[in-house]
Design a protein around this nucleic acid. Sequence first.
DNA 1: ATACATGCAAACAATTTGCATATTA
DNA 2: TAATATGCAAATTGTTTGCATGTAT
Lengths: 141, 141
Amino acid sequence: MNKGQALIELKSKGFKHTDKREDILSLFENSTGYLSAKDIQLALKDTYPGLSFDTIYRNLSLFEKLDILETTELDGEKMYQFHCTEHHHHHLICLKCGKTKTIDICPMEDLSKLDPDFQVTGHKFEVYGYCKDCRNNNKVR
Amino acid sequence: MNKGQALIELKSKGFKHTDKREDILSLFENSTGYLSAKDIQLALKDTYPGLSFDTIYRNLSLFEKLDILETTELDGEKMYQFHCTEHHHHHLICLKCGKTKTIDICPMEDLSKLDPDFQVTGHKFEVYGYCKDCRNNNKVR
DNA sequence: ATACATGCAAACAATTTGCATATTA
DNA sequence: TAATATGCAAATTGTTTGCATGTAT
């Protein structure tokens, strides 16, 4: 998923095009990792000094519902990035800058018959640490 | 970790023995899965009608700091269970009752050389679904 | 007696909601 | 103009903290 596709998806579902919406999507287009509502507010505070968290949250929720964004939870904060549509995979996540890298191995492939009595509906596999740029200066977010 | 060990650990660190503390630990002793602060308040509301969330949270945090409990985050709620000391492993987690089962396979074993530039500090692998008892009635917690 | 534990009330942070107004199609 | 988007203020949820009191050692 990318900004262009997202805009088309929004339009096709009858949602309106607004500058704020487009600028929020641009942030994800220009980011290589997860962003929080706070990150967005911070990044857009010069462009839209009055941009409210209501609007940010409402848009993030909408984007998530439309599968434009996917989420993870880092330290009690919900984080968002464009939904990866190509293939199922997982991420290395930098705890400082939120940057992600894909891991193409999924542990579930090997675990088909974990427990026949347990009905699996989902899983989470994430690797945390510090990316190259942050590792020399790795204070926690 | 179990209740007996936990009580010894508390005593050895100079923390006092209280009925509430012991009863909270008993809950974990008698549970096969993760419990939230709310679960604890609910389970003890007859025994201690006035038991406050402050006390629950303070104790849970203390237990976590002392490595008596380990945690995960489920849907914005922090969940606790006795810290598993034997060996590194992961869990199947029932989304309805919180019950867990260990998975002895760890995906990290195969991923030693994921990305030499990324300094790995941790990982999370959890499988979600419904346990045998809950699968016939699987409404979300 | 002294340090730790608890309850109360209030504060917090992240997120959500109702409602009136503004904006897009 | 009709439906959607936004801001404001207030509410909600999960959690934490200061302070005075209560209790275990």
